[in-house]
Amino acid sequence: MLILEQVNKTFSPGTLDEKHALKDVSLHVKPGDFISIIGANGAGKSTLFNAVCGVFYTDTGRIILGGKDITMTPDFKRAKVIGHLFQDPMRGSAPDMSIEENLALAAGKGGWLSRVSRADRAQFRDRLALLGMGLEDRMDHRVGLLSGGQRQALTLLMATYNVPKVLLLDEHTAALDPGTAEKVLNLTKSIVEENHITCMMITHNMQSALELGNRTIMMDQGRIIYDVQGEERSKLTIHDLTEKFRQASGRALDNDRMLLGVDE
């Protein structure tokens, strides 16, 4: 489904701030995979997502999505087949426009001069009802009036309205309170399962990294240092993960910086 071949990216090359953010990253994501990605801050997790989304062009290497080389495709064209959610719930929607208008843009149906039809409105309403937040009765409200959780749920709906080939979740529940975070996470799970969306999720919560999905990747200093799935993964504990990190990177995992959500 999604293939990265020897991808490299250096920011501010030739300056004091030079940062080799992605080092020879190769990854083969199979259709239907749900991959959780862990690693310390600055490990390159978000950079990896940004490379896939086309926020910047990679220096070397190839990115192939659904059999098509998208290495040099501009970001807005990739967005047709890639959904991207961020930690900040404000990033995915336009605050001064109504829920309906936001959804109309996400749906992207019809010609440039077409307007939201009655059928579109009915469909928006049905989809919103699935979120279970009562948003279907507030379609003409400004999105800026919604809470962070409601806004993130709406963003999730918008990102998956036209089923993407791959969905990238960049700690999309980290800014929400625990209850809302769980609700949004459950919504994510059900939408992903229902539509069989291939999905990658960055998390700082080791527990959910192991519980969710079928594959876990650990990144450090711009490299993928550990990639586990299947039986080996099912036996894995959080302790094993920290141990793996030490072995692979040659240093102890800095627990504070990783903000581990370990329930013990």
Binding site: D75, K77, A79, R91, G92, S93, A94, M158
Partner: peptide, 16 residues
């Protein structure tokens, strides 16, 4: 309207 409000969102709606 969305471009003036949140250009990121416009891009992620596959609009230039």
């Amino acid at each position: 309207r969305a471009t003036g409000n949140n250009p990121d969102m416009v891009r992620s709606s596959s609009i230039n």
